[in-house]
Amino acid sequence: MHVPDGFLDAPTSIATGAVAFVAVGVALRGARRELDDKTAPLAGLVAAFVFATQMINFPVGAGTSGHLMGGALAAVLVGPWTGVLCVSVVLIVQSLLFADGGITALGTNILLIAVATVVVGWFVTRVLLKVLPKRVGMVAPAAAVGAFVSVPAAALVFTGLYAVGGTADISLTTLATAMLGWHTVIGLGEAAITFLAVGAILSVRPDLVYAARGVISERDLVIKTKEAVA
């Protein structure tokens, strides 16, 4: 669901472009703190992963299917900065090489899909993990709630942008209710898939889940000698 060209007027598009530029710049600095000189290869591979994941169709029934947006998932898996960066790069590539999302709407798309979903998803997950008991089993539910909230939140940001630079006169309340209602449903799907995927990764490689870093208990290396085994 990328915003195409001409959905928002030119001044708004340029303004969101500027904001997105700054946001990506900040994310670049943050990601270097998260990943150091691993940034380029790892963020690149995670971006390729996000892109590929968006191609997996999840059947909803009656012949329709949806796909993951992956903002909150990326935030939970690789951290907020790298997450913003990866999803932004995905959006740039989609816009330039697949014409998915208008080039003038690129800033808007980065702001909505990369920044809004990742930041909201991360924030909600983080707060929940602070409140909930510190157990690995809590990470996937927290991520699911984060993913659920992140989708309508992005829809709300879109409604806000539309109020400023929309090109059609639909009453704002109509748009807001339609966007929120629809995206709450999408958010449910996003939450379910994020929950299942994070759970699957936690059971195999919990150390790879960024959000779980605080809750994985540090285990000391135990060397079992013959006597200890016997």
């Binding site: 992963f49 994941t53 059947p59 898939i193 995927a197 990764i201 195999v204 490689r205």
Partner: peptide, 21 residues
């Protein structure tokens, strides 16, 4: 076919992430 099959697909997503990372 339907959302009951999502766990299988989501596990593939998880495996794909681990392999990519």
């Amino acid at each position: 076919r339907n959302p009951l099959h999502w766990p299988v697909l989501a596990r593939s997503v998880g495996a794909l992430f681990i392999r990519s990372f």
